[in-house]
Simulated scan of single mutants.
Amino acid sequence: MRVICPHCHKKALITSTNELTGTVKDLYCICTNAKECGASFVFTLAYKHDLNPPQRTTLQIAATLINHLQPEQRKRLQVDLFG
């Protein structure tokens, strides 16, 4: 992961981190452009959402849906999928 200085837009180094929750961290950073900038700052890194759920979750969703089908609907699904 690359952090860019918000002041001079040069690369910055992550010097330490502080985990706020299991999915949120503060990243303590310092700009590598020491001559012209040298800023130190904190970025917050956070998990936002899935683009594609993990396979296990997908299988759980499918199993739940299948379990809520009527017996005739399950048979029809089985025929449609496996002939």
Rank of each mutant, 00 (worst) to 15 (best):
M1R: 08
R2H: 05
R2Q: 13
V3F: 10
I4H: 02
H7P: 01
H7K: 07
C8Y: 01
H9T: 09
H9P: 04
H9I: 05
K10I: 01
K11A: 05
K11M: 09
K11I: 02
A12S: 05
A12L: 02
A12E: 01
L13R: 08
I14D: 00
T15K: 11
S16I: 00
T17A: 04
T17V: 07
T17Y: 04
N18E: 12
N18V: 04
E19L: 07
E19Y: 04
T23Q: 13
V24K: 13
K25P: 04
K25R: 14
D26S: 05
D26Q: 11
D26G: 01
D26K: 11
Y28I: 03
C29L: 01
I30E: 11
T32A: 07
T32G: 03
T32K: 10
T32L: 14
A34D: 09
A34I: 15
K35P: 07
K35V: 11
E36N: 06
G38F: 10
A39D: 12
A39Y: 06
A39T: 09
A39K: 13
S40V: 08
F41D: 06
V42G: 04
V42I: 15
F43V: 14
F43R: 13
F43K: 15
F43N: 13
T44N: 10
T44A: 06
L45M: 09
L45A: 14
L45G: 08
Y47T: 06
D50P: 15
D50T: 12
L51Y: 06
L51D: 05
N52C: 08
N52R: 10
P54N: 14
P54M: 14
P54A: 14
P54C: 11
P54R: 13
Q55K: 11
T57V: 12
L59T: 14
L59R: 13
Q60M: 10
Q60C: 08
I61T: 10
A62W: 11
A63M: 15
T64G: 13
L65S: 04
I66W: 02
I66G: 02
N67R: 15
N67C: 09
H68E: 13
H68R: 15
Q70P: 12
Q70V: 07
P71D: 00
E72Y: 03
E72L: 09
R74M: 15
R74A: 13
R74K: 15
K75H: 06
K75I: 08
K75S: 05
R76N: 08
R76Y: 03
L77I: 06
Q78F: 12
Q78Y: 14
V79S: 03
V79Q: 04
D80F: 03
D80N: 06
D80M: 07
D80H: 02
D80C: 02
D80K: 04
L81H: 00
F82H: 00
F82A: 00
G83V: 00
